[in-house]
């Protein structure tokens, strides 16, 4: 089974792009499954279901979403194997921008949109920096010059990535992305594999439910600004 991790800031068009890719993959009779990770709520699983795609949903709730992802992805992988899925796609929002769900030697995609601001490629860090493919969306809304400046910014942050433009509304570019998905290497299993980037360290009183502000309540891994 192939596994693709797709990440990107909220509302960048991840689901629209994945849906278009699935349509293209289906023409080649490839069986696709999706695991949608989110924090508090999502209705995207319904969107996949309405397309007849096998889908699982994981909401991290009070937990750090990327810790939640890494603790569950292996079970999701086994689910995919049991269902006889050819390509399993994990979709997770960019969340705190500090994280990335990308796994070594597993194809990774970052979806980012042209409207998100020219400094965003720098801001969103490892999920873009460590991605194999960067998909830029919403190109129809901006000028050609803006598209070019934006992909230039992306290339500066991640020069070794394949950068491509996909229109989530019309599907333009999705076929090419589907081809890359289908050509990715088979992932035998996830046990012993490593994340490309370490998760944020956080182990302090606030992780354990502390709500009060003040020095005396701050315990554990605390860092102070130089003010």
């Amino acid at each position: 089974m192939r596994l693709i991790t797709v990440s990107g800031p909220p509302s960048s068009g991840k689901t629209a792009v994945i849906c278009r890719v699935i349509e293209a993959l289906r023409q080649q009779a490839v069986k696709v499954g999706v695991v949608k990770f989110d924090c508090l709520s999502t209705e995207d699983d319904e969107r996949y279901k309405s397309m007849g795609v096998l889908v699982r949903k994981g909401l991290s709730g009070a937990l750090c979403p990327d810790h939640f992802f890494v603790s569950n992805i292996e079970a999701c992988f086994h689910w995919g194997l049991d269902e006889g899925i050819d390509i399993l796609i994990s979709e997770s929002a960019g969340l705190c921008n500090r994280c990335s769900p990308h796994i070594k030697d597993v194809m990774s995609v970052c979806v980012i949109d042209n409207l998100s601001g020219q400094n965003t490629p720098k801001k969103i860090g490892p999920m873009l920096k460590s991605a194999d493919i960067v998909v830029i969306t919403k190109g129809d809304i901006v000028s050609q010059a803006e598209r070019e400046v934006f992909s230039f910014r992306v290339k500066n942050v991640n020069p070794r990535s394949t950068t491509m433009h996909v229109n989530g509304l019309t599907g333009q570019g999705a076929e090419e992305l589907a081809r890359l998905f289908a050509e990715s290497s088979d992932v035998g299993g996830l046990g012993e594999r490593q994340l490309r980037f370490a998760m944020p360290t956080a182990l302090c009183s606030y992780c354990l439910g502390e709500k009060r502000i003040g020095e005396e309540y701050q315990k554990g891994n605390i860092r102070k600004m130089d003010i």
Partner: peptide, 19 residues
């Protein structure tokens, strides 16, 4: 294109330079 406005958060000079 038919776009009548830019959306990028840059000043005109930097934008032309970057392009």
């Amino acid at each position: 294109s038919q776009n009548m406005h830019f959306v990028m958060d840059l000043d005109v000079g930097s934008f032309i330079g970057l392009h």
